[in-house]
Design a protein around this nucleic acid. Structure first.
Lengths: 261, 261
DNA sequence: AAGCGAGAGTGATCGAGATCACGCAGAAGA
DNA sequence: TCTTCTGCGTGATCTCGATCACTCTCGCTT
């Protein structure tokens, strides 16, 4: 089952945070592993273009599981026990430092592989994966995974693609937190980036933003209060609208003009 | 030869910077491509563990070239024409925003592949590669590279490894610029990180630091002046010594205590 | 209905660090 | 030998955003 091993860097305060995850349903959440039989459909879902043989090889070694929101899939510092293929739901990839500050590095979507680079390099996970929206994951143990990509060239290529996209995403993140000096700039950049998942209608983009201000703050490296204030300012300027968890970009151009990337 | 295409994001001031690279030897520098015959030794150098067949396939499609310091290998926004394998020297991977600010994302060492993820995803280069120390590179054109990793499983695996290490490095960078709030903290982290290439003797690490304060500033996301001031402060506290380009970490523990990663 | 807790909104304060504006030294070239 | 240029050292300001300390408003549970 889930390994309880924790790296030295995982200091007490952080651990407390993890024991009581933001929206967690208690400790049982993290252990909720529902075994279901792998279905053909689920696999082809996120592994388009793989050969029959490869798909079957993957199916043989994978374990499907469902997790509720708040569950922790793996934690920074644990030995990389395997790769998790995200089939359904949303997963938050984050890192914390010893005084409890959190940086969210990525919001993973279905089709992505979690822990991939750690498994390939054979080093401990360097991120923590927390379920944001109830998710379905296929777990492939370390050894089986390496054997599989060694034997199946198309699988290797597929994962090289995923890795490449990962790289691009992180470079983008580094650029945005390293080059956008002001919070309004980073926030504008984030909103524009997030809204690419939304629906545009004559210049006005509408998209679901099911995140707390706290989470947005951790995504752009700012404090919760400044996020609140800056969002208010954007609303005041009619640049955005924000009811419940629906975000409307009224004036996309205004946001873009803020970003000097 | 080098494609002159530039993305819209490449605004005038940035371009001016590129036309006059820091330590460049003028515009001719960027065009200095010296064709030499590929040697067996050079290849095995950075591609340990590849099969004979794969090595030969690589040799057939690669073009060796030498570049002087200051030369630009490729620029952010250009279509990804191929992968550059770094054989000798040092390369600076950076990104700039429209008001001229620069962030250095990585200092590449021999054995690394430049432009790898862009070629695999088939998107334009998202970084600029500038020679820091005179370098020798093997260029593999886009199509040849993809064909090669498609046909040779071990090559694919090898590059997946490089990609994974890239990922790790960038996650590390994002963590350090996103989680280390103060400049002293980031600078300490940088010095510790950099010193892993140095020689340690009873607690005192000695390493070459052939970088200007400006470059260090761009590596940790700070201004040149604050880097100067913070380095002075470290010297004053006897934490480090810095003569010419030789860095001596007198008190590694002091630096480590500053970093809350 | 009452209590609770999480998230959001706001004000006041204060310090780190960006920015500007210099002087200075050593290397490179004329 | 005399400029020039690039990189380093420093002082004076001033702004942005972190932090602290609240209140208020929803949903939920009980």
């Amino acid at each position: 089952m889930a390994s309880p091993i924790m790296a030295a860097r995982t200091a007490a305060p952080c651990f407390e945070r993890w024991r009581n995850p933001t929206k967690g349903t208690g400790s049982s959440a993290r252990l909720a592993v529902v075994q279901t039989s792998p279905t053909e459909e689920a696999v082809s879902d996120s592994c388009e273009g793989l050969s029959e043989g490869t798909l079957q090889a993957l199916q043989k070694v994978e374990h499907l599981a469902s997790f509720p929101a708040g569950a922790i899939i793996f934690m920074e510092g644990q030995p990389a026990r395997g790769v998790y293929l995200l089939r359904q739901g949303r997963v938050k990839l984050l890192t914390t430092n010893s005084d409890g500050r959190t940086l969210i590095l990525k919001m993973a979507k279905p089709g992505e592989a979690l822990g991939l680079h750690s498994v390939i390099t054979g080093t401990p996970y360097d991120l923590t994966a927390e379920i944001l929206q109830p998710a379905e994951l296929a777990f492939i143990p370390h050894a089986d995974f390496l054997k599989c990509i060694d034997e199946h060239g198309d699988a290797c290529l597929h994962f090289a693609n995923l890795l490449s996209r990962d790289c691009q995403a992180v470079y983008g993140l580094a650029r945005s937190i390293g080059l956008c000096r002001s919070v309004p700039e980073r926030l504008a950049h984030f909103l524009l980036d997030w809204s690419t998942n939304g629906s545009a209608m004559d210049g006005v983009v509408r998209v679901k933003l099911a995140l707390t201000h706290e989470e947005i703050a951790q995504l752009i490296g700012a404090s919760r209060e400044t996020v609140t204030r800056t969002l208010s300012e954007f609303k005041r300027q009619q640049t955005i609208e924000l009811n419940r968890s629906t975000l409307v970009l009224r004036n996309k151009a205004a946001l873009e003009s803020l970003v000097a990337l």
